[in-house]
Design a protein around this nucleic acid. Structure first.
Lengths: 232, 232, 232, 232
DNA sequence: AATGAATGAGTCTTCATTCAT
DNA sequence: TATGAATGAAGACTCATTCAT
């Protein structure tokens, strides 16, 4: 079988897995399901991927790749965009990505969780995962991604669209955190028992405003005299 | 058996579960494990908790309770603290909580995930969970917690320690998102292959600064003329 | 506690069990369910009944008793009824009993099954059952019941309402069989996919006619010349 | 693995199940038992049969098939037998079947019970059963079987061996009921405490006679004047 | 008499993974 | 390459029964 057919088959498996995991979640998706959806045998899935984990790492890789592409798109023809504009577009598309391609976003976050474990104690991470050829690739992908984001901010600082006193690296990670946290809880606010006057939409706007202000600085001058006392 | 002994036993089970889940994760922890660690029979676990899910919800409840207490502590004798100070302390202790009591923080986030599902389609949520007496309690806990956080910000706005143009609700949720996201990825940055000049510590500082500036406004005047084009 | 209260409590347990088993079946009814419905503790159920089997045997006993009463009622003031009339009424009320008090009828049949096992090999029968004080009582009840039925037929033979060439014992058992079998399958005939032109109602009539004819003889003279050949 | 080996293995599982259920009953037979007896792993049982219920339905199917074959055999070369003869042979072999292949007979009756439930309320029937591919097959088998029995009686009516005033359908179901009831209780009559002069053998004869007379009519003229009152 | 906490053996079922073909 | 039968280790949950109080 030629390289081409081989790749086709790998792709078919991956696509099947992505769709199924998207519908039912990783845990509820069995290797058998994937094989059936890809119209191949279970054994062949194991021929292409060493384990279910391995398959999921392939998905994670694809997740990083799509994310990277998304970052690149945000840059556009970079000459024509300020760093701030890049970041604005990026935030928009990142949020859309997390919503519409939840499988990928989940996979990426799952990987970050593994990385966390790995740092605490390498032994904690499943060897099948740790020693997989994918693992180091993913570490690299993660790194590349962060670099892109950081670059956007640096650019913005240089071109004056982003305030100069920011530290690009930590700002990027902070903004990323914001977005990750936003995705995590945006679905759960404002259930029936009210008192809290907020809905998904109004929060979204508030969120974006603060996101933007972090980069640009708030127009409102900071509270004058640094905190001039609680009660007059 | 008195109420006291009963509660002791419930506590013993809960503690065993908390420890095990903390070490191995929810999925990898079996009810059998919990029973063994608590030195009781598996059946008894089911006598006190209807299901593994139910047990996990009890943990979640405890998580919310601890979190609420933590919020209360941040308020301190409220007369003596500005809203900003409350929020500063809160962020500090929240981050510590998420690190040191990961099980609880995970449980709380897991519950927010359920709430998300519930909003999309109630049927998606496991009936065992949905119809549990815990479920509505947790919804309430979530709500109470948010109210506390929002109150801190409102207070700060009133006492002038937080900039007045903020919308308390969405600001709270945004800051919460930031912290959640921070916890999610702070463990995974700056693995070996460098280029990116950042480490956990430096990011933490950057993060806190931005967190703080959101509330106070940035001292640096915002990039003058509101972004009037990239360069020229 | 007086004898009276004791009996009241036993009765309460029994009634709870009867209702629950009627609704959910023996297997699906737990001792806990019964205790709860009777508003007593599980332990107390075991105080009054040695085991779940024992409780079921008490129900069986009650089933036999109700059946016996039903037989007695069918006799009425026996002076005023022919044996045939008794049997006709009996068949009617037996069928109603089996339908409306399914729990009891099932229990009685279940017991007959045990008896069957017992005859093949006593060891097969659960000792808890076999050695129960109920067991021999039930054997006696069964016997008494049969005697009543047989008596009805004998009476009918003597009073000329039932054909004289019948053997009372085997006729009774045969008719009982018919009714048991009828109850067993009457609910399952004539599902959708037709061709067979029969419905529950028409069969019921056919059944009754044949039941009646067994006792009375068929009006139609038996097929003349004993079977005069298949094809002339 | 060829189709043949596959069928062999299915058969092995089936046979193990049949034997075990025959010895211990459905409830007391575990899937593990079956696997062990068939010398395979438990997982493989579930590979061939979706559930224990499914396995039992396969047994039921086999029961219907054997029963159908038995009916066909009773017909023999139909040209040479009257309908009455067919029915006589049928009753004989049916009774033998119910005795010697109790598992199958029980399974068939169990299915009729399901059908009953299904008619009352489809929801009552376990979905695993209801939606099984076996279910509709079994409905069909049941139907086919009844058709064969009815045909035997119709034939007998046409060829003059069975009395012409009978309604084939309801007569068949009535006779089937008789046999089912007979099987149900024949094992339980005449235990020790006597008075009732009957034994299994004598009843069997009485039963057959009445069975036969239903079809042929009783030679004894029916009790003259239709029961014109009890005595006077 | 009465309670209900406690037990533990059991039951079905699932699934990642392997391997003979 | 490709198949899919086969494995076996779990794992969640149930329930009749017991027993200390």
């Amino acid at each position: 079988m030629g390289v081409y057919e081989r790749q086709q088959k790998e792709k078919k498996i991956l696509e099947a897995a992505i769709q199924l995991i998207g519908e039912k979640g990783l845990h509820a998706t069995t290797v058998d399901d994937v094989a059936k959806k890809a119209r191949i045998s279970k054994g062949l899935v194991y021929f292409y991927y060493k384990s279910k984990e391995d398959l999921y790492m392939a998905i994670t890789k694809k997740g990083f790749d799509e994310l990277k592409e998304l970052f690149h798109k945000a840059f556009g023809k970079s000459k024509e965009k300020t760093g701030l504009e890049v970041m604005t577009d990026l935030s928009e598309s990142y949020l859309a990505f997390a919503r519409e391609k939840k499988v990928f976003h989940d996979a990426v976050l799952h990987f970050l969780g593994l990385l966390d474990q790995y740092r605490v104690d390498k032994e904690m991470v499943n060897p099948l995962v740790r020693d997989s050829q994918f693992f180091s690739k993913l570490v690299q992908s993660h790194h590349d991604l962060a670099k892109l984001g950081i670059k956007a901010i640096s650019t913005g600082i240089k071109d004056g669209s982003i305030r100069p006193d920011l530290h690009a690296e930590s700002t990027f990670y902070t903004l990323w955190s914001m977005m990750i946290g936003y995705c995590r809880i945006s679905g759960s606010i404002s259930l029936e028992p009210g008192e809290i006057k907020i809905n998904t939409e109004s929060w979204k706007n508030g969120f974006k405003r603060l996101f933007f202000e972090i980069l640009k600085g708030s127009n409102t001058p900071s509270v004058s005299p640094p905190v001039q006392g609680k009660l007059f």
